[in-house]
Structures are given as C-alpha cells and as structure tokens.
Design a protein around this nucleic acid. Structure first.
Lengths: 333, 333
DNA sequence: TTGTACGCGTTATCAA
DNA sequence: TTGATAACGCGTACAA
C-alpha cells in the first residue's frame, strides 16, 4: 500500500547510471570503487533521499542488528534502570532493541519467547521470573545467543548475570544478632514477588533456623496504598520489629504507616529494603538498603551478549554483589 | 554463520510433501486448504520446530509489525510509564516495539530518526524534546505514520498528543492570588529541562506579569543530591516562598532540604510539583502536584498511531488535561 | 484445492 | 573497477 514512496537501491543505481552492485559497495564502504563513481553515487543517494532497508539487509546478511529484550512490564524503577543500561551499550555498539514485555503469566512469557524467535533477533536478554531454564533453552535451541539475568544458566550460547542478594542478606542477619540486635526480624512477603524475593526469603528462613532465632513472616500486597493501610492497622499493636522488605516503595509505605501511627524509626521499628534504588535516599527516614546498580547490570549483560554473539565470551556467568548502604531506617551497631 | 539451523518454509514443504505455497497458506490461515493437508502441514511444522522469519514476511508484505519508539534515555518514572502504556496496547494489537533512546543531543536525536527510517517500522511514536517539527516531518517524508507526544504537529500521516500544563498552571496561579496566597512564587528552572518545562515557565512569567505580581526564578541542577545541597544553603536565608518545581524527585530534594533546615511545610514553604508521579504520594510531606496518567497517554498515542496506519484517524490532535491534586505541601485555601 | 513463478530490497559471488 | 545473477525466506497472483 505505502510502498510507492520508498526509494530502492535499484532506483539509485539507475539514476546514477551504475549497477546496483556498485551502489551496494558504496553503501557498505567496501572500497573497490573509483572516487569518481563513488562521489557520483553518494550524490544521487543524497539527492533521492535513499535509505537502505534494514529488513532487506538483514535478510541478505542474516544479521538483523536487533536485540530482543524480555522484561516484565511492571513500572519498577530498577527495571527501567536495567533497560537503560542495556540500551546504552546497545546504542554504542550499533544494535537496536526490540522490547518484549510480559505480565505475571507464564503463558504470556512463553508466547513472548516465540515472538523473539520469529523476530529474527541477533540475540536476546531475558529478565523475567516467569521463565524457567527450560523455557530459555527453547529460545536457545533456535541458536539465538541469550543472556539471562537473575537465573543461573549457562550453555553453548547462553550466559547469565546473577545477583548475590541471598548471601549478603544472610551475613547481614548474622552480624545483626552478633552485634546485639534485639528486635524480632520479620520478612515481608509479597505475593508473586518473583524468584529474587523467594531466594531472599529462603535465605532469611534458613539463616534464622540455623541460628535458632525466632522470626516472623508477613504477607503484603504489591501496592503502595494497600500496604500503607494494612500496616497502619498492623502497627496499632505491633512494635519493636525489624522488617525486611523487597522494594523501596513498599518499604516507604511501611515507613510512612509507622511514622503516621506514631512509631519512631529506627527506635521502635527498623526497616531494610532489599532492592534499593535512588528513592531509598529520598524517602524519610532514608532507607537502609541493599543496592545493585541495575544500569551496570544492563551494561554488563549487553556486553556479555555481544561477546556471545561473536563467540568470544569466556566467563559465561557473572555475579553482582549488592552493597549494604546503611541509612536512617536502621540502628548502626 | 548461524544460518545452518534455521528451518525454512521450504524444508517444511518438502518434509510434508507439499509446495511451499501451501505451507504459507496454513501459516496465514487463509483457508483453501484441505483439512487433511492442513493437519499434515501443521504436524510437520511442529515436528521440525518451524518458526516463520518475521524478516522475510515483512519484506514480502511490506509490513514489519514493528513500531519505533523514540524517547529520552533519562530514568524518569513518567517516561517508563509512557513506554508501558505504549507497550501494553502494542502487545494487544500485535505490534513489537523498537526502542530508540536519545540523550540530550540534537545530533543524536537526528541520527535516531535516520535509524527509525532504515528500520522499516510501520509507524513511530516520538517523545523527545530535542526534535522540532522539521525533524519529525523528515521521518514523515518517508511516509512513516507518526504520533508526536508533547509537540503540536499534525499532517497527512502525523498526529499528536499534547499536555495542557501551562493553562492549568496559569489558572492555579490566578486562584492562588485570588484566595489570598501571600508567599512569593518562585519558579525553579532546571537546565535542559525541555519544552514542557519551558512552556510552564513561560506561563508562569506571563501570568505574573499580567497580574502585576512579584515573582522569582531560581536555577537548579537536575540531580537530587546537588539540588538537596544547594537548597540546604538557600534555605538558610530564604523563607516564605512558594516553589514551583518540575518533577517529583526535585521537589522531594527541596522538601527534604527545607525540612532538614528546620523549615515547616507548608507553613514556611509551599511546594508544587508540575509532573507528578506516584512518588508525590510517597515522599513526606506528600506533594501537591499536577498529574497526568502517562500510561494512559502512551495507550492513547499507540491507538492513534494504529488508526493513522490504517488511515482511520480523524482527530489528529488530542489534548490531555492535568488534574491538580492537593496534598500536604501546600496550604488549602 | 494445490503448485509455479515472480517479487520484496539487499548482499555476495563470479565473470568481465 | 564494474556488472550480471543467484541467494535470503516468504507472500501471492496466476495457472493448473
């Protein structure tokens, strides 16, 4: 329908009085072209406003310069940070990102995998808790190089970037008790929080069982307002706890609920946010949190993917270490 | 290099003992195929794990089912909200998003436009302050249907989504003085804040000049920490102002600086955030802000683009009205 | 209902 | 240094 306008390489060739092969050479700067004809061709390209079709190029070269990115659509800051990191080095290296967003549904995530395959991308970065190893290997069986974020998985064309939250959390808990921490630790569980949360919860449970310390687990909603309201009720008859919370905005909801109920932080209540972002520093009291620079993670994943595409990736697994940033929501011990 | 693995339509045809045209018909569910052969073909497709190449399909049909999205790479919440809105309806309607992120550079933005053109997308959504009408029309001269966000521009294949911040701000300022607001209003200017900020600033200035009221303009950095530090200094000898600030996190920096310097909000200082997000409700005191649901904006833009692609868009311009949400950073009058 | 043959816009391999 | 010409993987009139 709207093909009429597109200038093709053939039309350029005709207008310049050369063959399309020559035009192709000029476009790809392959040399083997007289300066005279090169200039002539370049001039007509500019005159006709010719732009090569990436589609046709991709089909002919079997390289699309496209990278598929599979991420949850949730509006979390750390996800858009990750995306920006990926995007930054993709741009620098001449790749374009194709976005495949998923919601909380295994089925949908699978259909996204299918789309990634048909999309003919040169590689893929996957960060989605709905997908397990088997699903990822499926995309890999179509020989599209893949880097998985937050899932231990390596293979011929697969690399992964991991987070070491669980270890860091365990050590933190140990040192908390060693240094005389006396509040009851409570893990705030978010429904459908994903693998990262689950691993943290597991570490929390195991550490406490190992140390023989009492603990508690609470459930909360993945919504600021509901969590705020729930905890306003909760704090009417709870005090002296140490809450471990998944994300900043949930931690902030809890902090606000506590403050508005008259609790003092950190004296009456301590809060630790597991996945800290810049908002940990903005909310009041500022949040003690574990922190990983997700932009860096994105960059690393993209660099690894490029290496994987070029068959140059040696370390197929990279582990990011969160740093504990102590702020005002916990007591310095 | 890695073409060896890809199963093509031809191999399916051969394995199923039919022509590739028949396979094509089955894929595209065009009918005109016996149930028997259809089943046979579908079975071999599954057996061989065949996935059609989107590239080849796009080239043959001149439809890529790809939408180019040009947005700044800045990690602002409202941008990722916009992207999610776009993504949501894109997914629903069977389009894939190609991401073209820009930084603060006209040159780079232009090169992204070029990439969008060569990318052979079916349409584009552009939200980037670096690009002016001329630049956008360039993409349009390649007959790529385009929806521009935050820039008044319509044409044969161009629609736009606009924000009415300036009007709402003017009215707010007027009513502020009418109702006896007596603090000096100060506009906090962010360097390189973009068109939306500039339009707000212009409205601020014009309204004050029209009303003959004194006012002030401050400059600040687009960084939480620096803004926080700067205003900690500033508040040592400034009091009783009404600050109008572009984004939540800058407003939060100012609020925190004020609070930490001993100012009371809203008694000693009032703050209005122009582009409010969910964080307006999380920071303390909660921020009075103008609010537009950017996810809705993204959805609308995408719907408009689809209509544009199908030559069915009647209203080529749509204006979003921000709502004023009064919270605790201003005095209710 | 099925198959043949051509076109989509490139790149790449040969000859010339 | 150039120019035919065959791929690339698929859709689609047209013919059978």
């Amino acid at each position: 329908m709207n093909t009429k306008d597109r200038v093709t390489i053939y039309q350029v060739a005709q207008a310049a009085g050369v063959s399309l092969a020559t035009v192709s050479r000029v476009i790809n700067k392959q040399g083997n072209v007289t300066d005279a004809t090169r200039i002539k061709v370049e001039e007509t390209i500019k005159r006709l406003g010719y732009k090569p079709s990436g589609l046709a190029q991709a089909l002919a070269t079997n390289k699309s310069t496209n990278i598929g990115v599979v991420i949850p659509s949730a509006n979390y800051v750390y996800i858009s940070n990750l995306l920006n990191g990926i995007s930054e080095v993709a741009k620098k290296k001449g790749f374009i990102l194709s976005l495949f967003t998923t919601s909380h549904s295994h089925e949908e995530a699978l259909s996204m995998i299918e789309k990634v395959i048909t999309s003919h991308v040169d590689g893929a970065i996957i960060f989605d808790d709905e997908l397990d190893s088997e699903d990822v290997m499926k995309i890999n069986s179509y020989s599209v190089p893949t880097v998985v974020v937050n899932s231990k998985l390596v293979g011929e064309k697969v690399g992964c970037v991991l987070f070491n939250y669980a270890d860091v959390l365990s050590k933190y808990i140990e040192s908390y008790y060693e240094k005389g921490g006396d509040k009851m630790m409570t893990f705030v569980h978010v429904h459908d929080g994903g693998r990262l949360l689950n691993r943290n919860e597991k570490a929390f449970l195991e550490t406490h069982e190992r140390l023989g310390k009492p603990f508690n687990v609470l459930n909360c909603d993945d919504s600021y307002t509901r969590t705020y309201n729930d905890f306003c009720q909760y704090f009417k008859n709870h005090k002296g706890e140490f809450l471990i919370v998944y994300r900043d905005s949930i931690a902030a909801a809890i902090e606000n609920a506590a403050t508005d109920t008259g609790l003092r932080i950190p004296e009456d209540l301590e809060v630790l946010s597991l996945v800290g972002t810049k908002y940990a520093n903005i909310v009041r009291p500022t949040l003690t949190s574990l922190h990983i620079n997700m932009e860096e993670v994105g960059q690393r994943a993209m660099y690894m993917l490029i290496d994987l595409i070029n068959n140059e990736l040696v370390e197929k697994s990279y582990k990011f270490q969160p740093t504990l940033i102590e702020r005002n929501s916990t007591i310095k011990r």
